[in-house]
């Protein structure tokens, strides 16, 4: 698995054969068009806690060597491929499992610390942990007592 951390503003537009927006429903900040339902492969579940954003995808049969995950200028990109197991003298009676290349780009709803992004692949489930940048973490606001 290649984990790229790119903070430089490279021209990403050409990479995007599809684009989704994550919406942060918080004071309307970053409110962009909602992700379309048929957003592409792989399907993603995304959630957060106070410190990190988590993105999870089901990628059965994808080897970590065939996965390329990168974070750059506010986008998380998951690229990879899954190969078929066709062979000599083998006939398909049924073929439901997709194969080939995939590329998914998701706009992150807030700034993350790209240096500390981690990814794991277990039993065909990919989990990407994206620690929030300090500026994106929730802050406790102390309330001063009125005089």
């Amino acid at each position: 698995m290649v984990l790229r951390r790119l903070n430089t503003g490279s021209p990403v537009a050409q990479l995007r054969n599809e684009m989704d927006w994550l919406v942060q429903d918080f004071f309307g900040r970053g409110s962009r068009p909602v992700a379309p339902t048929a957003a592409g492969f792989p399907a993603l579940n995304v959630w957060e806690d106070g410190d990190s954003l988590f993105a999870e995808a089901e990628l059965p049969g994808v080897k970590s060597d065939d996965l390329d995950i990168s974070v750059m200028v506010g986008d998380l990109t998951i690229q990879g491929r899954r190969s078929t197991m066709a062979g000599e003298g083998v006939a398909f009676h049924r073929q439901e499992r997709g194969a080939g290349q995939f590329n998914r780009v998701v706009r992150l709803p807030f700034e993350v610390d790209a240096q500390r992004v981690e990814a794991s692949l277990r039993d065909g489930v990919l989990l990407v942990k994206l620690p929030k940048a300090e500026s994106a973490k929730p802050k406790k606001i102390a309330i001063r007592a009125a005089e």
Binding site: E58, L59, P60, G61, T84, M85, G87, G89, V90, A91, F92, H93, R94, Q95, E96, R97, G98, D123, G124, V125
Partner: peptide, 20 residues
């Protein structure tokens, strides 16, 4: 999702069960 393949000697079922 499942692929079903047949060769001379066997039938093979390939099934995606992520997270199992």
């Amino acid at each position: 999702n499942v692929d079903i393949l047949e060769s001379e000697n066997e039938l093979t079922l390939v099934m995606d069960v992520p997270g199992v």
